[in-house]
Design a protein around this nucleic acid. Structure first.
Lengths: 358, 358
DNA sequence: CCCAGTGCCGTTACCGCTAACATAGATGAG
DNA sequence: CTCATCTATGTTAGCGGTAACGGCACTGGG
């Protein structure tokens, strides 16, 4: 309320005047407007390609912005326009190979919608998921893509109240918040069981992760067991692991389970990576695959193509899932919250060379 | 300037009054403040744990925020405080396996600094890198971590003018913008050449990616050739690929190069993935590894642990790089732009079982 | 009894940009 | 020539928070 302040008030509205030379300060619209001799609004219009601006003015402004090296401040823009071009993507892990592929589908589809994915990783921990969601929602994104259907109550509530379109991905076995895109892992397990039984295998072992938070793996196992049970068959043995190089673990687990239960005639792995390790181990140790011992994994990762034999697997439609999810978000009319899409993709069994032909 | 507007002015400062019931509208500080009977400022203080607030008030506010399900608006907060808790991380790819590991180092280190990584992927394309940088800088992040030293002029200028700390990672062979953390790929190539020559190999082939934008692979090759040249040895043959399953490509390339130049006694692969494919192919086809034919890759990915034989490789210190880079950003005093850190990590050769012992 | 110091909370003035409206000049129909 | 219409640009009022400061009730030392 003293001189200095009051004086400046006259300069431009109630804004303080800028010191003319302050190299450290980030540029604003104001700098560009002064450099090009038009109002801030006009500069804003030019930079966003919105509204009518004469070609001459446009050129002048672009030139000024370029030479100054101006980068717009989206924080201010977003606050003023109530629009944010970000889409939150929440996944459990990046090292899983599966999720980067989903991501790549999302990015590709979002590419020219002006929307941008922002990734958050939960490490399969519900509390971390909560934190990540909270953090993301606080940026008021245009949409959220979240892996899985299982969330804490708090997380679910946050998503519901957020007012942004939410797409849960990967899994369709359960109730969703808004929209879902995925496959039925239960059914995937069931199908694989049917395939294996049809090929005549009966002494079947399962090898998977110890993680109870990997609900999709669990559902596959559930479906698998159900499929076996329908034919009066039970799992003959199981082996679980956690952490470490999946390929190596696959070897170790395979050796362990076959040592414990030598008469197994099929090994169903919860993912291709441990499956590949198992396959290598079996081949090295002279097992007759698929004659005496069948093998199958899950995911259809492209690493399998380089193996000595093609492991039986099942495509989990990862890229497709990403694409569809992105389409739902991108196509979302800006306020008419329709939501409620449920898209179930159907994975296809790729029998490869590790299930014997009937 | 008409009735309706003027009337509202009296309600609360110059803010318009809210319609009391509008379920779709996102919550604001105001809602919490009204629900708890204190000012917005006090609510803000409570939610940020800043300044003095009595325990009673704090409880009241937290209670109200919780029951309403309030999520703060970081956009507004960031604009007002000129502080953003985001760190931009720009990498060429997520499917490379190497980058998720760097990322995991970054995340881990940033975990309890309040900073959050935001990932952008360039697909090895300079134009895309420019776009991604522009996009990220427009959110005024607290720091930027960018893979590689090679950028377009525009990109470099943007980063320099941005006023935020910049850490370039992975590679130290060249001039940097602000800080760097990485290894010398040239020296890595040199070292590997020395190792191979010391083991007595002389007819050496190189297998790598066709991508000219992968500067680090190129530098390794340069260093490798330089190392050979110093001993009067030249590359006997080379084979390049692009796209597809790296494991499979490794097989195909290995077959191709050995068919073309059967007397090769060593194959140097530009990454472990194709190296692994090559190793599998060589073993299947009865090559005497490492007696008659030596093999080496690069990166020390943990997939190698599951292979029938340990491929010679070199650790690229990925996680370590992520950690150091994050430390630089996190430790950056908020305004005293020191910068200029140069951290060179030293990769270690892991001879494995595919280079013969001397 | 006065006043500096402290704990707690409110007020004011922005942050940098954009929606919505206002306005000046050019244009064309009547 | 007048006035509605259109184009190109400017003005105003926020968006939802936070920094900085102000004020009030208490407290304790002089």
């Amino acid at each position: 309320m003293f001189g200095v302040r009051k004086d400046n008030i006259h300069k431009k509205g109630s804004r303080l005047a800028r010191s003319p030379v302050d190299p450290r300060r980030a540029l604003t619209l104001r700098d560009v407007s002064e450099a090009s001799g038009v109002s801030e609004m006009t500069v804003s219009r030019v930079l966003r390609n919105r509204g009518d601006v004469s070609d001459m003015t446009r050129e002048k402004v672009l030139e000024a912005a370029r030479t100054l090296g101006y980068v717009p401040n989206k924080i201010a823009g977003a606050l003023a326009s109530q629009r944010v071009n970000l889409v939150g993507v929440v996944i459990p892990s990046l090292s899983n190979l599966v999720f980067p592929e989903v991501l790549s589908g999302i990015s590709a589809e979002l590419e020219d919608t002006g929307l941008q994915p922002v990734v958050g990783v939960t490490g399969y921990a519900p509390e971390k998921e909560e934190t990540v969601l909270y953090e993301m929602l606080s940026w008021r994104p245009s949409g959220m893509i979240v892996a899985g259907l299982e969330h804490s109550d708090a997380a679910r509530t946050m998503l519901q109240n957020s007012g942004v379109p939410v797409v849960e991905i990967m899994d369709v076995d359960g109730p969703c918040i808004d929209s879902v895109v995925g496959i039925s892992h239960r059914r995937a397990g069931l199908q694989m069981a049917a395939e294996i039984l049809a090929a005549g295998y009966r002494r079947i072992g399962f090898l998977g992760t110890k993680m109870p938070e990997d609900h999709r793996a669990r559902k596959r196992l559930d479906g698998f067991q159900e499929g076996l049970a329908a034919a009066g068959v039970q799992l003959a043995d199981t082996e679980f692991y956690s952490g470490g190089s999946a390929l190596k673990k696959g070897r170790e687990m395979t050796e362990a389970i076959l040592r414990r239960t030598p008469d197994l005639d099929f090994l169903y792995y919860s993912n291709d990576m441990i499956g590949a390790g198992g396959l290598l181990w079996c081949l090295e140790n002279g097992y007759d695959v698929p004659g005496k011992l069948g093998l199958a994994g899950f995911n259809a990762v492209d690493l399998l193509e380089g193996l000595p034999r093609r492991l039986a697997t099942m495509d989990s439609c990862r890229r497709e899932i990403g694409i569809k999810a992105a389409q739902i978000i991108a196509g979302h009319p800006h306020s008419g919250l329709i939501g409620g899409e449920v898209i179930e993709l159907t994975p296809v069994i790729q029998p490869g060379d590790t299930i014997r032909r009937v």
